[in-house]
Structures are given as C-alpha cells and as structure tokens.
Amino acid sequence: KKIKIKIKVYNPETKEVLELEIEVSEEEAEELAKKLAEELEKKGYKIEEVEI
C-alpha cells in the first residue's frame, strides 16, 4: 500500500513557503517524514505541519 506524505515548510528568513508531496510504502512513510523534517530544520526551515 502506498502512503502520500505532504509537508508544508516555512522559512522565516525568506518568508518562503514550500509544499512537498511524495508517495512511499507504509513502512517507509514515518521514517522518511521524520528524516525530511530533521533535514529541513537543519537548513533553517520551521516545520509547520507533517501529514501522513
């Protein structure tokens, strides 16, 4: 079964909002969402919402 992940991120420095969407297997979904959120935060983005 495929799971659709939508991530909306906001960069306070540039006032930019990015929306990302990807489909992955159920097993990958939670781990991938967690890794993406961590990487984006390292780059200065503030995570507003992660929906699985």
Rank of each mutant, 00 (worst) to 15 (best):
I7C: 02
G44N: 02
E28P: 08
K42T: 02
P12N: 06
V17N: 10
E30L: 08
E51H: 08
V24W: 10
E38D: 09
E49V: 11
E13F: 14
E49R: 05
V9Y: 15
Y45A: 13
V50A: 01
S25W: 10
V24E: 13
K42W: 02
E38N: 12
I5T: 00
E48T: 08
V17E: 10
V24Q: 02
E38V: 09
E26N: 07
V50F: 05
A37S: 13
K2G: 06
K2V: 07
V17F: 12
K1I: 05
E16H: 13
K4R: 09
A37G: 02
E41R: 13
E38H: 08
K35T: 08
L36C: 03
G44H: 01
Y45D: 13
V9P: 01
K35D: 04
E38A: 11
E30K: 07
G44V: 00
I5L: 09
E13D: 12
V9H: 04
G44I: 00
I47Y: 00
K1R: 14
E21T: 10
T14A: 04
G44E: 01
E30A: 10
T14S: 08
I5Q: 00
I3F: 15
K42G: 04
E31R: 08
I22N: 07
E41G: 11
I5A: 02
I52C: 07
K46Q: 14
N11M: 05
E28W: 09
E13Q: 06
I5M: 03
E23I: 07
E51I: 14
E28C: 14
A33G: 05
E38S: 07
E19N: 15
I22F: 15
L32M: 06
E16S: 10
E27T: 13
I7R: 00
K34W: 09
S25V: 14
Y45K: 15
V9L: 12
E31T: 12
I5K: 01
K6N: 07
E21Y: 09
Y10S: 13
K6M: 05
K42V: 01
E51S: 13
I47S: 01
I7V: 04
I7P: 00
K8D: 01
A33P: 03
E19T: 15
E16K: 14
E28Y: 09
K43D: 11
K1W: 04
E39R: 02
A29Y: 03
K46D: 15
K6D: 02
E30I: 05
E31D: 04
P12K: 06
K4C: 14
I47G: 00
E28I: 14
P12Y: 12
V9S: 15
E38R: 10
P12Q: 04
V9I: 06
K2E: 10
L32F: 08
E16M: 13
I52K: 01
K46L: 15
